[in-house]
Design a protein around this nucleic acid. Structure first.
Lengths: 224, 224
DNA sequence: TAGATTGTTAATCGATTAACAATC
DNA sequence: TAGATTGTTAATCGATTAACAATC
């Protein structure tokens, strides 16, 4: 989560993967430029930098690294920036995911409209609680865990989203890995073990909050 | 979110606030040491570093900065590390929060057990949707927005958690700021404007996911 | 005492920023 | 042409790591 950032531990640095900080900045460039693409054909490095309160040189360097070329006196073509950053981030190809755990968090994830926008389609929700299975979440029906395998295979699911209790997270992770899922997005408060070829990202709400607390208490002390 | 990390923009650097990366590392030290405190009276910098796949020197330096002193040949007193890091992070003092927006995400937050563990108590949930008001979430009843003011005042609420649509986020933020809330934790996909004295943290699920996609696509390319 | 581990200073490394030439 | 903005090289800055002395 923020920055989680913020809270994801180091994981398998794939060969051609960009530096983490760079990827984070690109994500923000993408957001900004996306909001601008309808209004303006071009965008300057200074405009992007201003918005992010970053340095214009930084922006130019980053864009240069990923192969976006601008024009002196003109700036960058907005659509260009959007396409290239989107491509580097990998959000220009559709991805399919399943959500395991249909509690409040699982439901929130399935219904989160932002996922489709960046090309993620949730094709299945699972829960082993009989009270939950059968219920509808958006257009999906909550299924029993036995159906994970066929759904993953038939849909070419590449991402498993774990929104279940910590106790069962590893077991489900292992199962998904054995089905060739390439990435895990873990909302359960545990560390998972998975082969280096699987990307694991942790979202730990409490960690982000601890960070917030730090800044809060500093402010309070300073002000009083 | 993780690493969100990950996704919070720069905000008001309060005078005595520690560097962001340091705070993030401290959060992880805290987690690790907390899990160990029952088992072991002491912990060495190497053990902490191993677990986080970080550098032992780094750990010693960080602990030294926040005033944790160890013993040569012995290591650090586990409880000591826990107390000091907890104190620096500000999670040793209880905080009170309200949640505005009682959708799935809002419910997930209210019911998230990890919050109480780090000293956050949610004392109110609000929604302007008549379908939702009156419903119970855990031990709380969803209230109408008009009750925000009395609840904030009576409970000394310092944190506002926004789990509502982007369109109404700024309006609610302004209202909370005028009630002297000191921090905002924004789950809505918008940038908020707030005075520098208010700490704002953004949790943008989609951003974390975009980062994940990047590493996924790199892995795929490398493997094929 | 010998050995392990801390704590700190110095060296390296990398990332950010500044300067400026290239160019539309 | 003049001026604005890119693109890149060089300089600075800070953070990480290595080395080692202090010490229980």
């Amino acid at each position: 989560m923020t920055d989680g950032t913020d809270s994801a531990p180091e994981h398998n640095p794939a060969q051609h993967a960009l530096k983490r900080v760079l990827v984070q900045r690109l994500t923000r460039y993408y957001d900004f430029v996306k909001a601008r693409v309808a209004d303006s054909v071009t965008v300057s490095s200074a405009e992007i930098a201003d918005f992010l309160s970053a340095d214009a040189t930084q922006v130019r360097k980053d864009l240069s690294v990923i192969g976006v070329r601008g024009c002196p006196r003109v700036g960058y073509i907005t659509r260009d920036v959007l396409e290239k950053t989107g491509h580097v981030l990998g959000i220009d190809v559709p991805h399919r995911a399943i959500v395991v755990g249909a509690g409040n968090l699982g439901r929130a994830i399935v219904l989160y409209p932002g996922l489709l926008e960046i090309g993620l389609e949730v094709v299945g929700v699972f829960d082993n609680d009989p009270v939950k299975t059968g219920a509808r979440i958006g257009s999906l029906r909550v299924r029993v865990p036995e159906e994970i395998e066929p759904v993953v295979r038939e849909n070419g699911v590449c991402l498993g989203i774990l929104s279940l209790p910590a106790a069962s997270a590893q077991e489900v992770a292992d199962r998904l890995v054995s089905l060739n899922v390439r990435a895990l997005w873990n909302f359960a408060p545990t560390t998972l073990s998975a082969p280096a070829s699987v990307v694991v990202r942790y979202e730990n709400i409490a960690n982000g909050l601890a960070e917030l607390f730090h800044y809060m208490s500093r402010l309070e002390n300073d002000t009083d």
